[in-house]
Design a protein around this nucleic acid. Sequence first.
DNA 1: GTCTATAATACGATAGAC
DNA 2: GTCTATCGTATTATAGAC
Lengths: 218, 218
Amino acid sequence: MTGNAKPRAVEKPAGGKTRIQMENETRILGAALDIFSESGFHGATLDRIASQASMSKPNLLYYFRNKEEIHVALLTGLLDVWLAPLREIRPDGNPVDEIGSYIRRKLESSRSFPRESRLFANEILAGAPHIGDFLQTELRQLVEEKAAILQGWIDDGRMATCDPRHLLFAIWSTTQHYADFSVQVRHVLGLDPGDKSYYDEAANMLETLFLGQLISVN
Amino acid sequence: MTGNAKPRAVEKPAGGKTRIQMENETRILGAALDIFSESGFHGATLDRIASQASMSKPNLLYYFRNKEEIHVALLTGLLDVWLAPLREIRPDGNPVDEIGSYIRRKLESSRSFPRESRLFANEILAGAPHIGDFLQTELRQLVEEKAAILQGWIDDGRMATCDPRHLLFAIWSTTQHYADFSVQVRHVLGLDPGDKSYYDEAANMLETLFLGQLISVN
DNA sequence: GTCTATAATACGATAGAC
DNA sequence: GTCTATCGTATTATAGAC
């Protein structure tokens, strides 16, 4: 022994976690996202999550106290990413640019993070037992803020009269649909699993729907 | 004994089921719809379904072989109701009337059958293990048929150029959203549980979105 | 930190009396 | 047809060696 009892800063940084701890937690969360988003909370088992993470079940439970803690960690970690596209809407822009780019960001989010979208959808469908608070406070406040921006454009005559909160619902539902209901989309279009070519068609559709005029007056 | 051995037609009709059988199956299916739509297939337990049906668990399993059989019975019974609004679209109508009334029927279906909508959503999210065939055959064929009608209107210059199948996806997602994500809708709008007043606002929004022009060109 | 073994329980399903 | 009792298994979680 060379007589150095000082804890090594590299392995135990002020944050509190060693490198191996962070790596394993990341691996577990990735595996859990696979399984939870595929099967829902009750359909997922610790066995499958552990297997997906190439880890024994007791070892997995060394990092997370129980199944629910993994689920909550995924959900709370997801929320900031989830709100990012909406946060970017700026009051000093114009409706076409701001709403158009918001839709593109949201659709891109569905394309890039379908597992996260399905995890969120499962949670809402189950009655939002873990994120009810978030929905009633943080999300509601953000929606009020952005809806006020849209309402300003309506008052200026730059948009049709409508409830801007429901416009946001329409954007959420149409974009998230391509992640959450991707199985149905592919089956109806006759596409192979993993084929995501429909996202380009979706982008065109949503641009026509939200930014153009869909039906001619005749 | 009065010596009449003939089976009683009232209790054993040609269909094959007695009155009490039909009543109990109906009660079980209603209870199962409550529980499955609230908790998903794996989150639901036979105990809760039996309790909701005011019936013992073994008695419940006298009418259905197992849990999955109840689930399948609900899903298959749902599919015709599910497609009814789409079937009604007529080629000899005009875009505004046909699409407008389709949206109203679909939204009314969400308002009246939110449990069925959530059951369907849970099934799709889980990868459609039981209705994958239906999606690839019956639903796909119906979509092709109705998309052809919409394409005709596009070719006639009565609608903007777009992929009509994706227009149907947009109608499905926006209308079903109010049933499937009702918890989020209520939390964001600050409504009490059970308050469905948002459906009228939704109807206005969807009419503006699909039938009017949302954003002015300026 | 990781493992094997196992405890504890929740749940689907069945047996058998009535 | 309905019940009580119970079996068998899947699954969450822990104990304790290394």
